[in-house]
Amino acid sequence: MSNVADIIGANILNIARQDYEPQGASVTMLISEESLASERLSNAQEPGPLPDAIVAHLDKSHLTVHTYPESHPDNGISTFRADIDVSTCGRISPLKALNYLIHSFDSDIVIMDYRVRGFTRDKSGRKHYIDHKINSIQNYLAKDTKARYQIIDVNVYQEKIFHTKMMLKEFDLDNYLFEVQVSDLSPLERDKIERRLRREMMEIFYAQNIPNI
């Protein structure tokens, strides 16, 4: 979260954290603006940086993360969910932090919501309900991310609501096993585990339980 604050040009004022037993954690950061040259500020629909550069600006707001680890009681599938909220009221969209977050977690499923709330009033008193052009969260994603994931959009343009879901296309089974390797499994065992994993991903992606086939 500190790296996210760096990417969007925020200054951390306060950090509150809480660990849970046997696992899990929550973190909340209060942040204020970090002074940056105005010519470096951009709301262009393009991928944001990875954590080796600061190209954004933030007014006072907050960052939060909450974790939800759990496991299936019967089939051995374990999932770990992290909910991250990047709330800003400055000139730069929090979408600039997406690439860093996606690459950091390397998740199977990524669900992103972007909503523009409220309004900004200009010097003449006219209200502006959005201050930058956007037609899809995908415009802020790096090419390698788009290549790795199946992606769908559900947007409500008149309400300034943008929703994008991503599911990993291919996965390496060795990255999902504990205390055993793929080479230790029979073809039948491997196929069974892969089908369980893919079903778990699809249920999370489509937000509904899929019956056994």
Rank of each mutant, 00 (worst) to 15 (best):
A5Q: 01
A5E: 06
D6C: 05
G9H: 08
A16N: 13
R17D: 13
D19L: 10
S26K: 01
L30K: 06
A37D: 03
S38N: 07
E39W: 05
R40F: 11
L41H: 02
N43F: 05
G48P: 05
P49Q: 03
L50W: 10
P51Y: 08
P51M: 12
I54C: 12
S61R: 05
S61E: 07
H66M: 08
S71W: 06
D74I: 09
N75Y: 11
R81P: 10
I84A: 06
C89H: 14
S93Q: 01
P94Y: 03
Y100Q: 10
H103F: 07
H103C: 02
S104T: 06
S104P: 04
D106H: 14
V110L: 01
V110Y: 00
D113L: 09
R117I: 01
T120F: 02
T120C: 04
D122S: 04
S124E: 15
I130T: 08
N135H: 01
N135Q: 00
N135K: 06
A142E: 13
K143I: 08
T145S: 05
Q150N: 04
Q150C: 01
D153F: 09
V156C: 12
F162T: 04
T164V: 00
E170H: 15
F171Q: 09
D174I: 08
D174S: 11
E179P: 11
S183V: 12
D184E: 09
L188W: 02
R198L: 12
Y206H: 15
A207G: 14
Q208L: 15
Q208H: 14
P211T: 08
